[in-house]
Design a protein around this nucleic acid. Structure first.
Lengths: 236, 236
DNA sequence: AAGTGGTCTAGACCACCGT
DNA sequence: CGGTGGTCTAGACCACTTC
């Protein structure tokens, strides 16, 4: 049984994406939402708070709840980490597997993954494409003690969906380091870029909700095809 | 009179930075915090929620509230946008003013700033240094209708502190686009980089809490001296 | 003054973790 | 099982915006 506030979040998020409140740039008041969904004020406020943190809305005391018109399209939204499929719902996503094997964690990886050196890990190297354009090269390690099984069919699709819905694990949080560098010759070739092009690089350490690391990855993004969007809130 | 939960946030944040909970990697239970601060459970939960969103903590149902050990040092934390002084509390921050003038918004800027074309805007071009190393070149426009006065002395220090504490405005939220590109010859010279180096670029549109845009800026970061840190939460 | 969001309380029951 | 966080309610009072 899903929590009430999550149902409200999903409902309003869908309406926001559909553009229901585009004209008024304002959504109904808390009072109106309370009677629409038949819940208490705190439950409405909890739902709104989630939508604010996702960058959809902002609240003005004494005035109302407004729609935040950010240019989402074409950007990777750092607040909604559900994979390329969610960021580009209307685009064609392709995945090419470059390498896939079971291997062992070296010292550096073991430290990042908070596991023993030599532990079994899956290595996945994929090229992601959006609308036929190279998007990024991904080098990813999964802790086999947690992600017990992977195969080519699974990694061809969404690994995260598999982890969530098939392995029934709850993804908790991630540390992401974002920087630019000169691309390696190998990655330049994969992405179809000239040598010594810039690269937008993203190093991730991804945790389950209990604090265990299950994924350590690095993505080399095509610097002309990828822009990240960060929607910040200062209020808190 | 500051809100109770804000006082709790400030107190716990200070303790977390001081490393009070480093050994146990765990902070007291909600019940213990309730009696320590003499507030209701919801107030404690509100405070914890803020610290979770700032990347300090994570919660595990049935188990407790844990310290998130992220490598903060040397990174610009995207969750805590209070300027370089906060991200590098122990480092020496320098600011060199390259250009400063009152000018008018062109069409592109007016669109981003949601103001009339030709409106008065302050233009500020600064080089920021951390520990003597070039950090980034900042090109910033402030809407004069909101930020009514600026001078060299103010922009030499923290413009944001001035806006907050002297002009008494409340900063609300920001849209930040992050990408990589080939640096311009001009910026390369300023940052002391070879021609055609990569650059980590950050375009910002910053809003007051009532939704008005007061700042539109672009920062060209030194690609070897700057890394951004994004602490994501999947739970919501 | 009326409307709307911001803060806070007290209490209830559920879900999950560990012993 | 007890401990701990997750969800939800009903109601109060305050702060700010708008008219």
């Amino acid at each position: 049984m899903a929590a009430k506030y999550r149902v409200i979040v999903d409902t309003l998020e869908k309406e926001l994406i559909e553009g229901v409140y585009i004209e008024t740039k304002k959504i109904p008041t808390e009072e109106e939402l309370m009677s629409r969904f038949g819940v208490s004020r705190n439950t409405i406020r909890k739902a709104i708070e989630v939508l604010v943190s996702r960058g959809y809305l902002y609240q003005v005391q004494g005035s109302g709840i407004f729609v935040r018109e950010a240019a989402f399209k074409g950007y990777v939204n750092l607040e909604r980490l559900k994979g390329l499929t969610t960021d580009f719902p209307t685009n064609k996503i392709e995945t090419k597997i470059i390498d896939f094997k079971l291997t062992h964690a070296d010292k550096d990886l073991a430290q990042k993954m908070r596991c023993e050196e030599g532990s079994s890990v899956y290595f996945v190297n994929r090229l992601r494409m959006v609308d036929g354009k190279p998007f990024g090269v991904e080098y990813s390690y999964f802790n086999k003690a947690i992600v017990t099984y992977l195969n080519e069919e699974i990694i061809q699709k969404s690994i995260y969906d598999y982890i969530r819905y098939d392995l029934n694990l709850t993804i908790g949080f991630a540390d992401r380091i974002i920087y630019a560098d000169i691309i390696s010759d190998k990655d330049a070739k994969i992405l179809g870029l000239p040598k010594n092009s810039p690269a937008l690089i993203n190093d991730n350490i991804v945790f389950l909700n209990n604090g265990e690391v299950f994924d350590v990855s690095r993505t080399i993004h095509h610097y002309r095809n990828v822009k990240l969007l960060k929607l910040s809130n200062f209020r808190e």
